[in-house]
C-alpha cells in the first residue's frame, strides 16, 4: 500500500486532464458533484452510483450511551447517519489492487 491521501485537488486535476476544461472550472465541477450528492442525502434521498456504490441515509433511534472513561450514562438522541455500500465492482477492484 502506498498510503497516499488524495484530495479535491487530485480529482479536479483528473477532470482537467480528461476533459480539457480550465483548472478552475474543473475544480468547480468537482464541487458541484459533491454538492448535489450532499443535497440529495440531506433531503433524505439515497444516492446510487452504478459500479461505484450506494449512499443511504438511516434513522437511528435514541439510546442510552456510556462515557467509556467515566462510566457515566449519557443520552444519545435519535439521529440520522449515512452508510456507504460499495458496489461489487469497487469491492473487487479494491481487493485485487491491494493483494500482496
Amino acid at each position: 500500500m502506498s498510503g497516499k491521501t488524495l484530495t479535491r485537488m487530485d480529482l479536479s486535476e483528473a477532470v482537467f486532464r480528461e476533459v480539457g476544461l480550465s483548472r478552475n472550472e474543473s475544480a468547480q465541477l468537482v464541487e458541484s458533484v459533491l454538492a448535489h450528492i450532499s443535497d440529495s442525502l440531506a433531503s433524505g434521498e439515497s444516492v446510487k452510483i452504478s459500479s461505484f456504490g450506494t449512499f443511504n441515509v438511516r434513522d437511528k433511534a435514541a439510546r442510552v450511551g456510556r462515557n467509556p472513561k467515566t462510566g457515566e450514562e449519557v443520552p444519545i438522541l435519535p439521529r440520522r447517519v449515512l452508510t456507504f455500500r460499495p458496489s461489487h465492482l469497487m469491492k473487487e477492484r479494491v481487493a485485487q489492487g491491494n493483494k500482496r
Binding site: D10, A14, V30, M90, G97
Partner: peptide, 16 residues
C-alpha cells in the same frame, strides 16, 4: 472521471 479516480486511488491503497 471523478468516481473512477476514487476507485483507482483505493485500488492502489490510497485514501481520498
Amino acid at each position: 472521471t471523478i468516481f473512477e479516480e476514487i476507485v483507482e486511488a483505493m485500488a492502489r491503497g490510497d485514501r481520498v
